[in-house]
Structure formats: structure tokens, C-alpha cells
Design a protein around this nucleic acid. Structure first.
Length: 209
DNA sequence: CCCGTGATTTAT
DNA sequence: TAAATCACGGGG
């Protein structure tokens, strides 16, 4: 089968931008994990931007630099994967440049390849929209865990395929406050969550603006 | 609504 | 060294 010429991989330059722009730019692109000789993939339909040292909701707020968040301090184009609530992995795409600890949380995918494998990994899922409709769910379905923390996203294991060269029109992007950051004061309300409007795989539709 | 679950962070 | 926290998900 012919691979479309337009299908290129996101490179270092693609990731080296501010996290808010990258969060929008990632919508409609494809996340791929090659594992155990098989390919699992899904189209990114929901993201959140984390703005680094100024952002009270970010793990790097105030310049915090710990063993857990060290991937966020590296160059853009690497993964930041961490465990939350002792149970669930969450995957971020590190944006910007080294020493600028900004990232984009991947919150939901539309499952594409390896859907049968995803069901095997996620016993609780009843339909396709249960597979990747949340940051923990998609990591479980895609087999992404802390072993992949710090991995280079321009390599051959975990990467982004660009399905569109332009970002989606603003009219098809829903925005809203980020999820689960109520502790973050004024930063909790900022519209830093982005989703493809009306996509059934979104973890929860952002409130109407 | 509540609760599991445990690494990480922060307080003492 | 101890306590609190937590970018979540599943089951009532």
C-alpha cells in the first residue's frame, strides 16, 4: 500500500514551539506507539497546555525541578510520562526548548490502529469511545507507561504522524478550562484545554463558551 | 457520590 | 521521618 506523500513525521522543529500553540497544532494529528511488533495509533482529539514556571497548575510551577519532572526541563520533542494517583499513567509532549519546562498533556484519542489490542489492555471498555477518552485511559490502551518517560518523540517507538499541515480552523476547536486543576487559583480558569468539537472520544466536552 | 493506590512532594 | 497531595478512572 502506498503511503501518502503528505504523511510526514513531526520533527524537532514541530515540537519547539510554545505549548499553547503546540496543543492546538497536535489536534487532528496521529500518535503512534510501536510495541511488541505491532502498531497502536489514534488521532489526537483533546489536549491541554501547561505553561511552565508561571503556571500554577504545571508540575514545574515556580521553577520546581525534581526527578519526576526532569523530562519537562529537556528539549521539546520528548515524552514526559508520570504516574498519578498511584494507578494511572499520563503522557505529555514536551514543547519549547531546553530549560523551558512547558508541555502538552494528551487527553484523548480517536482509536485507529490496533483497536483489538486496546480492548485487551482495557478490560473496562465496552465500546471504542471507552478506549482512549481520558489521559489515563489512552496510556493504558496504547501501552504507554513510565518506561517511556523521556523518550525522543522523533524516534521509531513513539512518535507523531502529521495528518494535516495546518492547524484546525478555530471554529472546529472547542476550548475550556483544564481538568483536575481546581487548586491552581486563577490558572484553573484559563482556557488551556483544546478539543475537536463534537468528537465522541473527548473525555468530556468543554463547557460551551 | 466515593474510593483505590502508591510515588512524589512537602511539612515537621 | 511522617503526612499530604494528586494533570484519574471505575463502580454505585
Amino acid at each position: 500500500m502506498q503511503i501518502p506523500r503528505s504523511l510526514r513525521r513531526a520533527d524537532t522543529a514541530f515540537f519547539a514551539r510554545d505549548s499553547k500553540t503546540l496543543a492546538r497544532q497536535l489536534l487532528g494529528q496521529r500518535l503512534v506507539h510501536v510495541t511488541g511488533g505491532t502498531r497502536l495509533s489514534g488521532m489526537i482529539v483533546e489536549t491541554e497546555a501547561y505553561l511552565g514556571v508561571i503556571d500554577r497548575a504545571a508540575h514545574t510551577y515556580g521553577g520546581r525541578r525534581t526527578e519526576r519532572n526532569s523530562s519537562m526541563w529537556g528539549a521539546g520533542g520528548h515524552a514526559y510520562v508520570y504516574l498519578i494517583y498511584g494507578l494511572h499513567s499520563c503522557m505529555n509532549v514536551v514543547a519549547g526548548r531546553a530549560e523551558e519546562p512547558v508541555a502538552v498533556l494528551i487527553r484523548a484519542l480517536r482509536p485507529e490502529k490496533g483497536i483489538d489490542r486496546m480492548y485487551e489492555r482495557r478490560a473496562a471498555a465496552r465500546r471504542d469511545t471507552d478506549l482512549c477518552s481520558g489521559p489515563g485511559k489512552l496510556c493504558q490502551a496504547m501501552g504507554i507507561d513510565r518506561e517511556l518517560d523521556g523518550i525522543n518523540l522523533t524516534g521509531d517507538r513513539l512518535f507523531v504522524e502529521l495528518l494535516r499541515s495546518r492547524q484546525l480552523p478555530a471554529s472546529s476547536i472547542a476550548t475550556g478550562p483544564r481538568v483536575g486543576v481546581d487548586y491552581a487559583g486563577e490558572w484553573a480558569a484559563k482556557p488551556l484545554r483544546f478539543a475537536i468539537r463534537d468528537d465522541p472520544n473527548v473525555s468530556r466536552p468543554p463547557p460551551e463558551q
